[in-house]
């Protein structure tokens, strides 16, 4: 009996020690970053995969169940998840992760954003008043988010603060070296004109100095129309784009149509971690993205 009580006690202790910080990330890229910075101290749940359009997720029961148990929510922000996250947070009954609390982190709020509209009107489609939310394809901005997220992890889980800072240091070292490599490798991409399905790659093209010549969507969030596509095709003669970019969750039809008519290669980019088999983590995401871009200009 005494043996049983003792083992029960040690089991309880073990459970207490194992209580990792539960991180609820809305998108795979920030889930990957939380894993880099949290290491074995965090248990990360990603609410979406690379094959899901983060704008159009439903407040599923499984998300509520996960949010209920989370210690920290890592959101993309800038209204990307406006269609589901606010509801999930409110209905989770979890006070710690409400906006304004340390348990709520928004990546887009850590950096300056591009395409902040001067006029907010739905006549312009699904615009985000706080600017383009797809900030993670600029590695410099990722670095800033990493710094802010490590600080936040340390705040939410103070006993492990040193670990998070050490992890950040390790990540930053690796990341800065990778950035130098990507910028060297990506030099031939400078000035290359591209068409994009949705404005998902603004930060990527901006970082690499590529030129976005048009979007297949006539307005953000509105599916490509034949009028829009033929308009883009007509413009191909005057200002030719070298490739048509899309994410893993965009349908391939519209970019294939342009590719078929104009011979411009349609390029699928991983867009986020898990979007292609090679994009296993953040470094893999950028490695694969650059490789695919370079292959298309060759």
């Amino acid at each position: 009996m005494r043996h049983f009580v003792f083992s029960l006690f040690t089991l309880l202790l073990a459970c207490g020690a194992q209580a990792e910080l539960r991180v609820f990330a809305t998108v795979p890229e920030w889930a990957a970053l939380a894993r880099e910075l949290g290491g074995d101290r965090v248990k990360v749940y990603s609410a979406t995969s690379a094959f899901q359009d983060p704008h159009r997720i439903e407040a599923k029961p499984s998300l509520l169940a996960q949010a209920r148990q989370a210690n920290l929510v890592v959101a993309a922000g800038a209204e990307l998840e406006v269609g589901w996250l606010p509801l999930v947070l409110r209905d989770s009954g979890n006070a710690a992760i409400q906006p304004g609390r340390p348990g709520y982190f928004e990546a887009a709020a850590c950096v300056d954003r591009l395409e902040v509209p001067s006029v907010v009107d739905r006549a312009h489609g699904d615009v985000h008043a706080a600017g383009n939310p797809h900030i993670h394809l600029d590695p410099h901005r990722v670095q800033k988010v990493a710094e802010a997220l490590a600080a936040r992890l340390a705040e939410v889980d103070a006993p492990n603060a040193a670990t998070y800072q050490a992890n950040l240091k390790a990540f930053s070292g690796k990341w800065q070296a990778a950035i130098a490599r990507w910028e060297r490798e990506g030099a031939p991409l400078k000035g290359v004109g591209v068409l994009v399905h949705h404005a998902s790659f603004t930060y990527l093209t901006h970082w690499l100095g590529m030129k976005e010549l048009g979007t297949l969507e006539p307005k953000p969030g509105i599916e490509p129309t034949s009028g829009q596509l033929s308009g883009l095709l007509a413009r191909q003669q005057a200002a030719p784009a070298r490739m048509v970019l899309r994410t893993a969750y965009n349908p391939e039809g519209p970019s294939q149509w342009i590719a078929g008519k104009s011979g411009t290669p349609a390029v699928l980019l991983p867009y986020t971690v898990g979007g292609t088999p090679a994009a296993k983590d953040l470094v893999g995401l950028f490695d694969d993205t650059l490789q695919r871009l370079l292959q298309a200009v060759r």
Partner: peptide
């Protein structure tokens, strides 16, 4: 160098980046 953020509160990642209209 990143241009200075227009509103300093935008750097508070606890809060949603508020749109100008809200």
């Amino acid at each position: 160098p990143a241009p200075a953020t227009v509103q300093s509160e935008r750097t508070d990642s606890r809060r949603p980046a508020a749109g100008p209209a809200s």
